[in-house]
Each structure stands twice: as C-alpha cells, then as structure tokens.
C-alpha cells in the first residue's frame, strides 16, 4: 500500500472498504503499537500539547506577558486586511516555486554525475556538501554581503566584462534572488539523499539495459528516474515544507528585518516579528496555522500527484 493509496483510501467513503482490506489493515496492530510506541509517546507527551496550545492561542490576544484573552475570530479578521501578510506570502511563494525545483535539479544532476564513478568522488562529494555544513551562520551572512554587495566580489567579476552590477543584496528587486542563490548553493543535503537513493538501484538493471542497447538518456528515463522516484518525491515534499518555513537564512541576511523594503520578508520571519518583536503571539499563532494549512494543501496535492509518477517496490 503506498502513501498515496492511503490518502486515496482516506478520501473514500468508509463503506467502500472491502472486508478483506479491513482485516488486512488490522493485521499488525500489536506489532505496530510496539514499533510506534516511541513515536506515540512523543506525540502525546511532547508534540500534541504545544500544537493544540498554539491552536488555542490563534484565537486569542496574547502578548506573552499576560494571560491570553480569547478574542474569537479577531485574528482572522485582521489577517484579511493585513498587507504585510500578503507581501510575505508573495515573497515566500516566489521563493518556494523557484528555489525548490532549482535546488533539486542541481542536486540530482550532480548526484548522478558523482554516482557514475568519477575519480576523486569522496573529495567532490565532501566539497559539494560544505555549504550545507556551514549552515546559515553569522559568518555566512557577512560573506554574503561581501560577495553580493554593491562593491562586492560578484560585481568586481562582472566589471571585467564591462558590466556594472547593482547592490544585489540591497535592491528590493534583486535581494530575494540572492537568497534563492544561497538556497540553491546548499544543494548538498538533497544531493546526499539522492546519492543514497542511487545506491539502492540494482546495477543489473543498467547492465541489462546496456546489453539491450539503451543509451544513457534512455537508461536515465527508464531506470534511474522511476527507481529514484520515491526519493525525488521525498526531497520534493520535504523541500516544500522546509522552504515554506525558511527562516534562518532570511533572518541572518537581513538581520531580522526582511528588508530592503520587505522584499525578503519571508512568512516565518513575519510571524517571528509579530510574535517576538511586537509581542503579538496570538496573531503569530494564527499566522502559523494558516501556514500549516497552506503547507498541508501543497503536500496533499503532491501526494495526489505522486500516483502518476512515483514508483514503489512494495
């Protein structure tokens, strides 16, 4: 049963499940209870409480310093007229739609290149992973300014070709672009997962295809892609969830402001500003649950679409 199948079954009316299916479903209940025990304890003891509390706070006025006051739908009403919310949604949407596919494409391309027995593979792999190791540290923030500033390295490079570049990181039109570059630059994480996935593909498949006279491209289309599809799917889903929540990079590059002129005001950054700088945690919680709904919708669409292209062994 695939994850997709589960979701499909979820949307199907209960009565439509066959008796056999029901019996099969309950077959491993005891074993599942044991295997899932840590997760269940964590869910009940640690995860669920804070989640439900934040859901409650979404309907309150909560300044962190005094008791939350229940205000009903006031936060939701405020959202409807909130211009910065719209701006942050737009920024985040552009970021997600551009940087996720771009990063995955780069990661996949390099993973395949590296998987094909390149000399010095461990070295390349380590080096490509470096940016992900560095994380979004203060040091990277300083460097990013030196590279993408008006008198930065990039412009020095461009001036060799007679091009005078703008202050990439400080112009409202280009600032978001530099953050997308920063994200793509950390392609090491999905690349490592792709590499691990590529290891799972039986070599015999390629050998057989080779003897059948299939070229590289055919092999990629008919073996690599389908066999890797669960991992691509995974990277896509998690990439979406992660990018929608992007915070640290935007925070360190703009020092928490989302500037210049709100051009890098990511959704999570706006939420953080509301919750912690402005001490409006009730509204921030409401924003968080709207984000959850958006991410969940995107994820559900992904699971739905997966049935057309994700191939499982089981």
């Amino acid at each position: 049963m695939t994850a997709l199948g589960e979701l499909r079954a979820l949307s199907a009316p209960r009565g439509m499940q066959s008796a056999r299916e029901k019996a099969a479903r309950g077959r491993d209940n005891k074993a599942a209870a044991i295997f899932l025990a840590p997760w269940l304890i964590g869910l009940i003891g640690i995860t669920l409480g804070p989640m439900l509390m934040s859901l409650y706070l979404a309907f309150t006025n909560y300044n962190l310093l005094q008791n939350p006051q229940f205000t009903g739908l006031e936060n939701i009403q405020r959202m409807l007229g909130d211009e910065r919310l719209g701006a942050s949604l737009l920024v985040t949407a552009i970021y997600v739609l551009v940087s996720v596919p771009l990063q995955l494409a780069v990661a996949l391309a390099l993973a395949i290149l590296l998987d094909r027995g390149v000399r010095g593979l461990p070295l390349y792999r380590s080096v490509f992973y470096l940016p992900s190791l560095l994380g979004a540290s203060v040091a990277i923030a300083v460097l990013w300014r030196l590279v993408f500033g008006g008198q930065g390295l990039l412009n020095a490079l461009l001036s060799l070709f007679g091009i005078q570049g703008p202050a990439w990181i400080a112009e409202p039109q280009t600032a978001l672009g530099t953050l997308i570059v920063l994200h793509v630059w950390t392609f090491g994480s999905p690349m490592v997962i792709f590499l691990a996935g590529l290891r799972q593909i039986p070599r015999e498949l390629y050998e057989a295809a080779s003897t059948d006279g299939a070229g590289r491209w055919r092999q990629f289309r008919s073996i690599t892609l389908p066999m890797l599809s669960p991992i691509i799917f995974f990277n896509l889903v998690l990439g979406l969830i992660g990018s929608f929540q992007t915070f640290t990079q935007a925070f360190i590059i703009s020092n928490g402001t989302g500037g210049p002129a709100d051009s890098t005001l990511f959704y999570s950054l706006y939420l953080y500003q509301e919750g912690f700088s402005s001490l409006r945690m009730g509204y921030a919680s409401a924003l968080a649950w709207l984000l959850l709904i958006i991410i969940a919708a995107f994820t559900a669409v992904n699971f739905w679409a997966a049935k057309y292209w994700v191939f499982y062994n089981d």
Binding site: L43, T47, S54, L271, G275, A288, L291, I295
Partner: peptide, 10 residues
C-alpha cells in the same frame, strides 16, 4: 507529517 508543518516560534 502535520507535526513538522508548524514553525518552531509558536
């Protein structure tokens, strides 16, 4: 999956 969709700040 839903459990990882809420931002840490709330």
């Amino acid at each position: 999956l839903i459990a990882i969709m809420l931002p840490v700040h709330v």
